[in-house]
Design a binder for these strands. Structure first.
Lengths: 167, 167
DNA sequence: AAGTTATATTAGGCGCGCCAAACTCTGTCA
DNA sequence: TGACAGAGTTTGGCGCGCCTAATATAACTT
């Protein structure tokens, strides 16, 4: 069916889903604030999404997801959650950053990759007692490395100075 | 200095870097083919990048990266490589897909996250013999899971049916 | 040197997603 | 009921990145 949605359209869907979970009617204003854009932009986007049958939105009325829209939104949101978990729990990325970056990546990765990432998280947390603290081991290693020292267990260098280019 | 580059501009830089590694003069045509866009689009982008001092490009001449452009491009390329390795080697994502998805994500993640991901890969491959085959364990787990069966070692379910929404 | 071909650039246009300004509804409260 | 405030929409405009068509330059070929 419908071609692939743009990242932006996906963000609208996800936002509507999440706002709807506070079980209050979802309003244009709330979407705009949540996405930090203006109401006209939201109005316009909703027109697009309506035309694709993903949202229901009587003029001046409440915004709702259609069944298809909701399915999509939930998929996107799941992806988001998985990514956020990986970044925050495994890589120990700062919470704000993890949220932000997960939000960008969620639109990029295919279903297969997500399934694999989910499996990986499950593997690390649910499977085999003696593997379940790998992540903790990694966090120790990370601290040594951040301190610029060699890894105490294996001597893996702390100076692989991960090419911090930027700005 | 200069504000953040767009994903597209980053892609141009990375492409120029990679084409330059075949130590032949980099031409507009090659960039266009590599990115699967038309030459006018490349011309235009080069004008932008030139104005930011990231590429050198006499009219009708050879395209080169400036020192700053090269530094940026290398950073982007490093990010790409790390992501690609993670997707392909850890998650066992199909090679083509890994390349494509890494290419999208490389523009999104910050330096800190990349450092952490690099550290994670190093940790998995270099550190402590008895941890170095975690990935293999995971790959076994993944196969069971893909077959829809429970994990033989821990009983972790194969039916977590990772919400395959889509299409 | 002149013509042919390949490469590069300019010109003009399009879709997307955003904006500010102006206008229109809706609900509330004298 | 009528007027005001706040939410929502329409209008017109802008930047980015892409396109095709037309033009310009460079590089061969004879």
């Amino acid at each position: 069916m419908g071609k692939k949605l743009s990242s932006n359209m996906e963000m609208y869907l996800k936002t509507i889903l999440r706002l709807g979970q506070d079980d209050q009617p979802v309003r244009v204003k709330a979407i705009a604030e949540s996405l930090e854009i203006t109401m006209p932009s939201v109005s316009e986007a909703l027109r697009t999404l309506k035309s694709k049958g993903l949202v229901l939105h009587p003029s001046y009325g409440e915004v709702k997801l259609s069944a298809r829209g909701a399915r999509l939104a939930e998929g996107i949101n799941n992806r988001f959650v998985v990514l956020q978990r990986f970044l925050a729990e495994v890589l120990k990325v700062d919470e704000k950053t993890a949220e932000h970056e997960a939000c960008e990546i969620e639109h990029v990765l295919g279903a297969d990759t997500f399934m694999r990432l989910t499996a990986y998280l499950d593997f690390l947390s649910n499977c085999q007692k003696d593997l379940s603290d790998i992540v903790e081991h990694f966090h120790e290693y990370l601290e040594w490395r951040l301190a610029g020292e060699a890894c105490p267990v294996c001597g893996s260098p702390g100076d692989q100075s991960t090419t911090l280019e930027d700005k």
